[in-house]
Amino acid sequence: MNPLVTPDLGLVVWTTVAFAFLFFILAKFAWKPIMAAIGDREASIEKALLKAEAAKEEMERLVHENEALIKQARAERDQILSDAKKVKDQMISDAKEIAHKEGARMIELARVEINNQKAVAMADVKNQVAVLSIQIAEKILQGQLEDQKKQDELVSQLLKEVKL
């Protein structure tokens, strides 16, 4: 039989011994701690990844929350602004109305005053005219009554007029 394919029993024994020795030493002192360490590391990486994922989700939630808050704040601002505009418009229109009424009232007062003043002035003018008329009449009378003849003439005229 070809020596190549004839297992040498001595080598079989030695291989068995050496492999068994290698297997037990490595299994106990190498593979066990190595596999355990790799497993632990993988577990911790997985945990870290899960934590990172959770943190990401939390961040997203916060961002959403912030966005909602900002949206809400904007809406509130718009509300406030539109309210303020309404109030402003109201105030302006109110002020206009009041001013209008006040103006009308003052105009009325002014008119009344003007009328009063006019009446007063008219009365005054009338008095002045009366005084002036009297004075003029006085002057005229005085002039006409300066000589005796004319006085007599007047008296006689007047007497004529008086009809008894």
């Binding site: 290698l22 030493i25 490595l26 002192f29 190498a30 701690p33 190595i34 360490a37 590391r41």
Partner: peptide, 18 residues
């Protein structure tokens, strides 16, 4: 050789935990 290699690798796993 295998014992030297893998026992030293195992010890570096113990030293460098995590």
């Amino acid at each position: 050789l295998l014992l030297i290699i893998f026992l030293s690798v195992a010890s570096s796993y113990k030293k460098r935990v995590g």
